[in-house]
Simulated assay, not measured.
Amino acid sequence: MRREPDFLDQAHDPRDPNPWLAMYLDRSTPIDDAVKHAWLADSSSRSRQYLLPFIRPFARTMIVLIQVFKVFTPRKLAFSRALHRLLAWGMENFIRPEANWLILRHFHLGSQILEFIARNAPVAVATNPLRPEKIADVREELFLIHDLNLYNFIIRLNKTLQDEGRQLEYVERPNLSMIRQPPLRLEDMPRQRRNFLDLQSSIELFTPIYQLLLTDSDFWRATNSLQLDETIGLYAATLLDAHDHLVLLNNRHPLVPMSTLRAGFRLTLHGLSTEMLHDFLMRMRARQDQSALAAPAS
């Protein structure tokens, strides 16, 4: 695969500053350095620049047409296994290595964040972690299970809190043992010449396919799960007493469902918000580990 120029390799021209370099050097928001580089390398790709403006309106038009088509088809008709095999094939053959790496990371990060909340909640809550090691693991209905896990976790957590008359509250020394970098390597991702499609373009194309091959209920639940970013953010902020970081969230107001037409764009924001929350927890764990090492032995 031909390597595109790295924005870090380019000299800074004050008359023509590189916007990607500016975003990479900025440290105002918490995000892992390797993730930020991969994210911006993907965002600055030719695919996103030249294909996304055509893919996005096409994908949104397809969402409308498929919604009309679904009116005349059985409501329970779904092809989840076929969908995930198709997605895994597309990831393997057409998606950029940075995008594939970020997608697989997302399953690990989402699982770690839910486990963090569960371990620090005042009640016992079961979780179902997803830890794919390779693209082929996506075939096991990972995208669908990822959405189900989120809703099931929120329901179990809040039912148990209500049943026991408890609530989430600040934890002075939170358990961060589950927070770690996933054992996934960018260099292990497919990187043939045909792996050219950027993350946002692939998500836009993925969305109407998801809608077509799943039930309306599955698609609606998946798109509206994106607005639970604020819910999960509030849980974490309550445990850590760090509500200031909620300003980074863009998928808000879960009580007001949004149109499915913008699901692709919102899914991208969801991935970025998850990376930022995970990095915030990683930094907190690093400080916690340093304090433990500095503490005198008793």
Rank of each mutant, 00 (worst) to 15 (best):
N175F: 08
L234F: 01
V125F: 04
R262S: 13
R156W: 00
T231P: 06
I155T: 14
D229E: 13
I55M: 08
P30W: 08
A59T: 03
K159N: 14
H84K: 03
R46M: 01
A126C: 01
L87A: 10
L8S: 09
A59Q: 02
S273G: 09
R2A: 12
Q49A: 13
L142T: 01
F153R: 13
P97H: 03
L246K: 05
I113A: 06
D32M: 01
P190L: 05
F72H: 07
Q192F: 10
S291C: 00
Q288D: 13
L142G: 04
L261R: 06
T231K: 15
R3Y: 14
N149C: 09
F58L: 15
P129C: 09
H106C: 04
M23K: 15
G264S: 12
L255G: 12
P122T: 09
L186W: 12
K76A: 14
I66F: 14
R185I: 04
L168Y: 13
S217G: 10
L148E: 15
S111G: 12
T215P: 05
W39G: 00
T160C: 02
P14L: 07
F116L: 07
V247F: 14
A38I: 04
E4W: 10
S291M: 03
T215G: 05
H108D: 11
D289T: 01
M1E: 06
Q67H: 05
I155A: 07
E92W: 01
D9W: 00
R81S: 11
L239Q: 08
L261M: 08
L269M: 11
A286N: 04
I103N: 04
T223G: 10
R131E: 10
R3N: 09
D42I: 03
N224A: 05
D188L: 02
H253W: 06
P19D: 03
N195L: 02
D137G: 06
M178A: 15
F107Q: 03
L40R: 06
I154G: 06
L261T: 05
E187W: 02
L248H: 14
E204M: 11
E141C: 06
R56C: 01
R81V: 12
R75Y: 07
I154A: 12
H12T: 07
K70R: 11
D9E: 10
F79E: 09
R27T: 13
V138W: 01
H245C: 07
V171K: 12
L142C: 07
F116I: 07
H243C: 00
V125P: 00
N251K: 07
D279I: 01
M23N: 11
N120P: 13
L277G: 05
L205W: 01
V171R: 15
D244E: 15
A88G: 03
R81T: 11
F58M: 13
R193Y: 05
L277R: 10
N120W: 09
K76E: 15
H12M: 05
K134F: 03
Q167F: 13
Q192I: 00
R166E: 15
G233Q: 08
M282V: 14
P183H: 15
N128V: 03
L212Y: 11
L269Y: 11
L25N: 14
P182L: 07
L65P: 00
P74Y: 10
T160L: 09
R56S: 05
T207M: 12
R221W: 04
D289K: 00
